[in-house]
């Protein structure tokens, strides 16, 4: 399953709820305001580090760049563009948006 999260972990619990429901082999893609969660040295980044042991973490590069945080993304997450988003959706049998 591919999970998408589009809100910051400070605004809503969708990020935490997503991580609590992601299973081994799933992928989590942070998009829109969700990308802030992948900033280095933050509490959500620590949670992502934990999650990354079982789940693949991706961030949407155009959203990262738009928000001026391109140089501050934690190690271990992969950047994808919209085509990469499409690939992830195609690779996983279902897509769950944590709205």
């Amino acid at each position: 399953m591919l999970h998408t999260v589009n809100k910051t972990p400070y605004e809503r619990n969708s990020f935490d709820s997503c991580l609590a429901h992601a299973r081994k082999g799933d992928a989590v893609l942070l998009i829109e305001d969700g990308v802030y969660a992948a900033m280095k040295g933050t509490a959500p980044a620590k949670k992502l580090e934990q999650a990354a042991k079982a789940v693949a973490i991706y961030v949407l590069q155009p959203d990262v760049e738009a928000r001026g945080i391109a140089g501050r993304i934690m190690d271990g997450v992969k950047l994808v563009d919209y085509a990469g988003f499409v690939d992830l959706a195609a690779e996983h049998p279902t897509v769950q948006a944590w709205l």
Partner: peptide, 18 residues
């Protein structure tokens, strides 16, 4: 439980969230 919920999601073929 949250764990069972996770399994339920994984078994689903179409997930609708609003």
């Amino acid at each position: 439980s949250a764990r069972e919920m996770t399994d339920l999601m994984a078994e689903s073929e179409v997930v609708l969230s609003f």
